[in-house]
Design a protein around this nucleic acid. Structure first.
Lengths: 302, 302
DNA sequence: TTTATAATTTCTTTTTGAGAAACAATAAAG
DNA sequence: CTTTATTGTTTCTCAAAAAGAAATTATAAA
């Protein structure tokens, strides 16, 4: 028999000084009111209420129990609303991981924007290229470039960027600008093996897929290292468009083979499969989605 | 589903970081551990623990809930032991009622003795001649002269005293000493209508019962008033032996018609019919019983 | 004395709780 | 890299309980 119910019923009975009235208020039968109080008395091995069929009086133990009961019930209610609110309004720390460049270029500004309407949320952003174990690390959310095979989590595509192949003008001057994917074999291809589609570069040549295995003098999981190397005219690099936006605009890098529209790569948000998604995660994901569509629109309009 | 059990299970799981281990410790099935935690999560609409089949991590809400849970569970345990102890060892206030003379002469010393081994108990003694409503007044115990008809309470005979008929020597000198119950019709009979057997005096004359209807210039429910009147030679009075013990010893009053052994009257303890008799009442009743047998022995030896 | 209502008990029905077994996922061991 | 053992979850079944209707007993008021 649910002890908390019994406590609630006892409290009501004790306060009203009347089983029938308490039963009516709680919309249970008189029989149940009796039984719950008796059950408590049996468990505590203490008489809580002395009663005849027509009148009642709290015993000393009943008095003591009533006071403490009230306190405990209040505390439970308080706890439940407090904990529930953690879910209904965004609050607390949102612990997430992200690939370095995405974190720096995209999440940074996004978080800054998010915090304005939701000042109750703070962030713990772990920047890493490694695939992370969300549960193990206690993350609320992880961003991952490319769809992870891990299927026990909820996986949601957040945004999609083209992969852009580019190089420094100086490099192209020195080695020539490739005109078709096949020519890449003669170039210094700087690649990131951690990026999908992993160890290969894909192109579309008049509807047909061309797969190149990039080879060159630098392979790194660090986008920054690759980018710096490319800017310094070491070779050709294939990276997500958003990573290189500034460099392309400034002319430090030049896009190559644009007409062979290299494959687009997706950024995924991954979060634990949970019946009850916390408010901070839910609202943050909404925010990400909203922003990514805004960016897409902006790109289309430009 | 018993929320307190769920809270206990959740706490254990959260602390151990492992459903199976918690289930083993609590000797329940793993399935139940899961269900209880899920039930909490459903009620709170909050994910408490993020988990894969092999690892788990408390969410922020889970962390918060764990802390508060622990506190609440501790508090409940504390409450229960405190309230239970009210029953297992004598403590608190024992509220009781008693007829005036019994209270003064008998309970006074008895309480003084009782408090020595049980210093945790204090007394609230209501002295009255009226029959009391134990429930209404919130009494733990009532003493009543003669067996009450009220059958919903536990009624226990505590001690038995002879009713003694007596008068002041001065009265007897003036009006003569009655030699048989019948002669009482010629005397001033001071009676207490509240005392059983109520409005009549009973005597035994060679095995046969003689009933007298006392008549006189004073009838009162106050034993003190009757006693004082008798001492002042107003008339004959029939009262419980213990009431008059001192007066008989000092010679202020003299017993009359002792050979017609007037009926004995019983003192009863009455207390609410309760499954769980509180320790203070239980021990006090033991004390009363012990004392009354001691007194009986003392009387026999004398 | 009668009447109406209170607490309780009894009895029956419905709901819930619990675990066994099956399952899916995963870490460790070989 | 497969095998093994173990974990958390789901499904299913059965037993236990909780709940209320009605009957019972007691009590206060009419």
């Amino acid at each position: 028999m649910d002890k908390l119910s019994s406590m609630r019923i006892f409290s009501r009975v004790a306060r009203l000084g009347n089983f029938a009235a308490a039963a009516r208020e709680l919309s249970i039968s008189r029989a149940m009111a009796t039984k719950h109080v008796m059950h408590l008395e049996d468990q505590l091995k203490v008489q809580l209420i002395n009663r005849t069929t027509r009148s009642m009086h709290l015993t000393e133990a009943g008095q003591a129990y009533l006071e403490r009961c009230t306190h405990i019930l209040d505390e439970i209610e308080e706890t439940e609303t407090a904990v529930s609110q953690l879910n209904s309004e965004p609050r607390g720390t949102l612990k997430l991981s992200s690939p370095p460049t995405f974190g720096k270029l995209y999440l940074g500004p996004l978080i800054a924007d998010y915090v304005k309407p939701y000042p109750g949320v703070s962030f713990d952003l772990i920047v890493t290229d490694q695939p992370v174990d969300i549960i193990e690390w206690g993350l609320d959310l992880a961003f991952h470039l490319g769809r992870p095979q891990d299927s026990n989590m909820i996986i949601k595509r957040v945004l999609s960027t083209e992969m852009i192949l580019c190089a420094a003008p100086e490099y192209l001057e020195r080695h020539g600008t490739p005109q078709a994917p096949e020519q890449l074999a003669q170039h210094n291809c700087l690649s990131n093996p951690n990026l999908p589609p992993y160890q290969i570069w894909k192109f579309t040549d008049h509807g047909k897929e061309r797969i190149i295995r990039p080879e060159g003098s630098l392979q790194s999981n660090s986008p920054d290292a690759l980018r710096t190397a490319a800017i310094n005219a070491l070779g050709l690099v294939m990276m997500p468009a958003y990573t290189l936006q500034a460099d392309l605009q400034d002319g430090r890098l030049v896009a190559v083979l644009r007409e062979f529209s290299s494959e687009s790569i997706d950024m995924y948000a991954i979060y634990p499969h949970r019946r009850h998604l916390s408010a901070k995660v839910r609202t943050f994901l909404d925010f990400v989605e909203q922003h990514s569509t805004m960016r897409a629109q902006a790109r289309t309009l430009r």
